[in-house]
């Protein structure tokens, strides 16, 4: 096959993206309540996410990367990954927060403009996971930063991460009347 035919087929093919999964309503409701209670200024309809690996084994990163590829196509929901904390609405952290990364995590969070949200992704980020009790970890993102959303799993499957991030979008939109996520 000539390369041009591959390119042409790619352009003409139907999108590979999977059907849109439902939003996790329960998580969305509880999040909306918390966002309102915290007098958090809503961020609007899309979220710019900064990923920080705070000691992950790399498993969560595998699934985060899956989420960004054609099949899950995260960006169609208005969630995009950004390179700098200056551009980020959401800090999405994985890993049990190693002592060697506490400072970097705190500095990155401090560099983000307000309002900002923190998501702890994966069992390690929730409470240290399989590495709980080690001298080398702080033990979960909550030990270092105020966490708005926990997404458990080892690693959480892309559908689960997607449900969590869409709940975040929904809750964020609900806490500002007149704007709704699709």
């Amino acid at each position: 096959m000539t390369p041009w035919r591959t390119l042409a087929r790619t352009v003409l093919a139907r999108p590979a993206a999977a059907p849109v999964p439902p939003v996790d309503r329960e998580t969305a409701s509880s999040l909306a309540g918390r966002l309102e209670a915290g007098a958090q200024t809503p961020l609007g309809r899309s979220l710019a996410v900064l990923h920080i690996d705070a000691g992950s084994c790399g498993g969560c990163e595998v699934e985060l990367r899956s989420l960004r590829r054609a099949v899950y196509d995260l960006e169609r929901f208005g969630v995009c990954f950004v390179a700098s904390p200056r551009h980020a609405d959401v800090l999405l952290a994985t890993g049990p927060v190693t002592r060697n990364l506490v400072e970097a995590l705190e500095l990155a969070h401090a560099a983000m403009p307000d309002p900002k949200l923190v998501v702890a992704l994966g069992d390690c980020a929730v409470d240290g996971g399989v590495f709980k009790g080690s001298y080398a970890i702080a033990g979960g993102v909550g030990t270092t930063l105020p966490v708005d959303l926990l997404i458990s799993g080892c690693p959480p499957a892309p559908e689960r991460i997607l449900a969590g991030l869409r709940a975040l979008l929904e809750a964020n939109a609900r806490s500002r009347p007149g704007i709704s996520s699709r």
Binding site: T98, N100, F131, G133, S134, Y135, A136, I137
Partner: peptide
């Protein structure tokens, strides 16, 4: 390197 040192040997 060493940022993701989790103390696996000790665990």
């Amino acid at each position: 390197l060493g940022y993701v040192h989790k103390g696996i040997d000790r665990l």
